[in-house]
Design a binder for these strands. Structure first.
Lengths: 330, 330
DNA sequence: ATGAAAGCGCTAACAC
DNA sequence: GTGTTAGCGCTTTCAT
């Protein structure tokens, strides 16, 4: 059975299609009586607006693109909840694309966004993306773009993230303040900007405490190696006081080793940068810098909605981070 | 600057719009030469098809709706990766809706799906949804619907899930086979169908081993209570041999307590139903029934694509589950 | 192998 | 306060 259109309602009520449209959209010109008649008829005949037609006519789409490099278990779910939270009382829907950390795929996706006439784009860059040139077509089309979390700063596009080096510095300083000196930093892939920044903060904090930094005090997750075995070897051979772990994923990977060697909490302190979930699922809870996916997602979506209203100038906003101290009192 | 349309290309090449359309879509009637001219011009002028217009004209949308009750950290990311995997070589995009476990919101979302003319719906039901009547409008509109994971079986809609009671039975039997008798089952909200089914399997397995089941041997997560404290009290007061945990979320919640009391692995065996991530992040790894979000997502999306081609009859498919034994050999 | 023309459902001038 | 009309960009008959 064909679905009822505005034309059907118009014929039914002997009104003009435009009157139906106006009544349904709460146009002030329409009399209360007509509006009621139309609304009743629409409800009775289960009228559903055809959004394809509406958006086509209006040259927009009601769509916000969310482009993510991958689905992970900590940051992304929170981010999506945040985006959802910010948009649920708007009339925008989310069309989601996963780039699988492939810059080529990312470029394709930008093409889809243009074809879809999305009204705004939230994008967390793929790990190996190192330029924003593929985003220029969006800018040229006047589509607001906000880079989230995994960002590159440029004068062309606005960003929302945390200050990664600051986050790491804050975390590590918490350790050095306690007089801990033998600190192992655990990091992700080094080609990632975020990794390098967090590494900078890590080194900074060590310098400020006059702890000489040597390459032996970091462990980076490289694609093909056996991280767990490397970590175990390192922890067995060196009497570290403390661990700085740059992300939940890495903490998760490190956990079995730490448990196996029974280092925590007695002989090894831990701090990490985290979305706040995992640190509380470890006993005793782990002190961390809170890096909330929810906050980034929610603020990001709200900012994007703003950008979609009037043209804002490019900004680089950093969400402030704070230390969540979880250690029991001494 | 206005984006180039088919009409623009037509004028440019002194051809008819229909010819352009045909050339771009690989219609066989078009001569190789014309096709090349058109393609070149399209590339030069950065022609992007306007999907709103195309889908409007074609009375479809290229959209698949993914409706989820919530974002969680274990099952959902895998599911989304699976869906993405299955769809990445199709021309379908995913429009995502989160119902926040609110049946009312779920109903609203169904309305959006109709308005968007989505071509198919993948839905995991909200926890408190107990009827499928709100999905009937989709059926009436001829839109294929596939229920994933959190399902209700009915003759009206196809489903893809695992056999939850079987999964639990398999897991618990692994414990009873080892002669373990004092088993505590940890479950989620009891109003959830999935919980009741896993509980059935749990009880079944105990019965089959002639272990008398009493209410004292389960702990259910109720909304407002302090799960961790309850679990701690229970574990302190009763010398359980083993734990059956029905989900990753619950295992995650239970972890700090288990670690605090230092029960695992020496005095407490654990089995759970899991997406396979968490059990390997615990030392030693935890034996589990693999309940893969990725598999459900991927198979689900593939099945939905099938359903979108020809009308399939209603089916209730169960993905087979298997025990992933992680204990070291004795 | 290409052109002409119509129309998908909706909305926004512009009339009255 | 309501009607008339035109058109968004695309595809698809039907013609030639």
């Amino acid at each position: 059975m064909k679905r009822t259109s505005i034309l059907d309602l118009a014929r039914l009520l002997s009104l003009n299609p435009s009157t139906i449209s106006r009544a349904l959209n709460g146009h002030p010109d329409i009399s209360d009586e007509t509006r009621e008649r139309v609304r009743t008829a629409a409800a009775t005949f289960q009228y559903r607006p055809n959004l394809q037609a509406r958006y086509f006519r209006n040259k927009n789409s009601g769509l916000i693109a969310l482009i993510l490099p991958e689905m992970n278990m900590f940051f992304v779910p929170g981010l999506m909840n945040g985006v959802n939270e910010a948009l649920k009382n708007s009339d925008k829907s989310v069309i989601i694309f996963i780039s699988d950390n492939d810059p080529e795929r990312e470029k394709e996706i930008i093409g889809h966004c243009l074809s879809w006439m999305v009204e705004g784009v939230l994008i967390s860059l793929s790990d190996s993306t190192n330029t924003l040139s593929h985003l220029m077509p969006l800018k040229e089309a006047g589509i607001p773009v906000l880079l989230l979390d995994k960002i590159i700063e440029s004068p062309d596009f606005s960003t929302l993230s945390i200050d990664d080096s600051d986050a790491a510095r804050l975390a590590v300083t918490h350790l050095t303040n306690k007089g801990l000196k033998a600190i192992l930093g655990i990091f992700g892939h080094e080609n990632l900007i975020m990794t390098r920044q967090r590494m900078d903060g890590f080194k900074d904090a060590l310098h400020q405490s006059n702890i000489s930094f040597s390459g032996y005090d970091t462990l980076t997750l490289n694609t093909q190696d056996n991280f767990e075995q490397n970590l175990e070897n390192r922890l067995r051979s060196t009497p570290y006081d403390a661990l700085f772990v740059m992300s939940d994923e890495l903490l998760m990977l490190s956990l079995p080793v730490i448990q196996k060697l029974q280092l925590y909490p007695a002989s090894l302190k831990i701090v990490c940068i985290s979305d706040g979930t995992l640190p509380h699922r470890i006993y005793p809870p782990v002190t961390h810098i809170l890096h909330s996916g929810f906050d980034i997602g929610k603020s990001g979506a709200i900012l994007l909605l703003e950008m979609m209203k009037g043209q804002t100038i490019t900004f680089h906003k950093k969400l402030s981070v704070s230390l969540q101290i979880a250690e029991p009192n001494p």
